[in-house]
Simulated scan of single mutants.
Amino acid sequence: MKAALLTSVLLSSIGLAQANSIDKGRALAEKGNCAACHGVGLNAPIMPVYPKLAGQYADYTYYALLAYKVGNSNAQFGRNNAIMSSQVQPYSDADMRDLAAYIASLPGNFVVKR
């Protein structure tokens, strides 16, 4: 009984600990000047090679940021882009999750084919 209660408390606290802050993510995006490359609302890149971010799934964005942070140190997981790798280095795991939550909250114009 005690083990079940302890497990329940631990599992519920994990969900609380992972609550992401859109406001913190917005502040990080502004501080990092993400719009300089990804454009207004992170949906109008200044060059065609830069992706639209607005509305992207939070988990995809988080893992992409993590892969840029890892960079060449892990050939199976890392992404190699000098600009993005340097941009994400100062961010903690929580910061990247907040950024991802903010980006997911933005209205995007991705097209979903049905």
Rank of each mutant, 00 (worst) to 15 (best):
A4D: 04
A4R: 07
L5E: 11
L6Q: 07
L6E: 08
S8M: 15
V9T: 12
L11V: 15
S12P: 04
L16P: 02
A17C: 08
D23N: 13
K24T: 13
A27C: 06
L28T: 08
A29R: 03
K31D: 07
G32H: 00
C34P: 09
A35G: 08
A35Q: 14
A35M: 14
A35W: 10
A36D: 14
A36Q: 10
A36V: 11
A36M: 13
G39K: 06
G39F: 05
V40K: 15
L42F: 04
I46W: 03
I46E: 14
I46G: 12
V49M: 14
Y50N: 13
A54K: 03
A54L: 02
A54V: 02
A54M: 01
G55S: 07
Y60R: 00
Y60S: 01
Y60M: 03
T61I: 08
Y62S: 00
Y63L: 14
Y63S: 13
Y63K: 14
Y68K: 02
G71H: 05
G71R: 02
N72C: 10
N72D: 15
S73T: 12
S73I: 10
N74V: 03
A75W: 01
Q76E: 15
R79M: 07
R79Q: 10
N80W: 07
N81K: 03
A82Q: 11
I83P: 13
I83K: 04
I83F: 01
M84N: 02
M84F: 05
M84E: 05
S85C: 09
S85L: 06
S85R: 11
S86P: 01
Y91C: 01
S92N: 04
A94N: 15
D95F: 00
R97N: 13
L99F: 04
A100H: 06
A100R: 02
A100N: 04
Y102I: 01
I103G: 10
I103N: 03
A104W: 05
S105D: 01
L106T: 01
G108P: 06
G108C: 03
N109M: 05
N109W: 01
F110D: 08
F110S: 11
V111P: 00
R114D: 12
R114N: 09
